[in-house]
């Protein structure tokens, strides 16, 4: 059995695995001579859409924790309101690592209003009560 993970070689058309359904079609996405994006290997129309999006502008949710003062737990889970560009994930993590919250916090509270000037907020994924009530 071969190892599943292969790093794409330079010049190769990168293979994108479709995650829409368990069929896991292997997509080849490239720009043709007319500058149109072509998706090959998709078993359905949703796969074609997925291939285009993953090729042009892949996005991921930012999911992590931050420090919280006086919370019943020492860390608070947070997420980006919507998915952010994939290549910004590590920059976003750097920003989030320098932020802390103070309990009590309500689920949905905005923790960082405009992450990396993307117009997307980072919000609390849960409510957290204060450990010592003031």
């Amino acid at each position: 059995m071969e190892v599943e993970f292969k790093k794409p070689k330079q010049g190769d058309v990168p293979e994108i695995i479709c995650t829409i359904c368990p069929n896991s079609c292997k997509l080849q996405v490239f720009e043709d001579e007319q500058g149109e994006i072509q998706v090959e290997g998709a078993g359905c129309a949703r796969g074609v859409e997925y291939g285009k999006e993953e090729y042009l502008d892949p996005k991921r949710m930012l999911i992590t924790t931050i420090k919280i003062e006086n919370g019943v737990l020492p860390v608070l889970p947070v997420r980006s309101q919507v998915a952010i560009p994939k290549e910004k994930i590590f920059d976003a993590i750097k920003v989030v690592n320098h932020v802390s919250a103070k309990a009590p916090v309500q689920m949905g509270d905005v923790i960082i209003p405009n992450l990396l000037e993307l117009g997307i907020s980072v919000i609390a994924s849960r409510s957290m009560a204060a450990k010592n009530k003031e």
Binding site: M1, E2, V3, E4, F5, I17, S24, K86
Partner: peptide
């Protein structure tokens, strides 16, 4: 799930040895 293979391993160049 495939989605987790792609978004948790492939995205971060973590090899999976089957």
């Amino acid at each position: 799930l495939v989605r987790n293979f792609v978004q948790c391993l492939q995205d971060y160049d973590i090899p999976l040895y089957l």
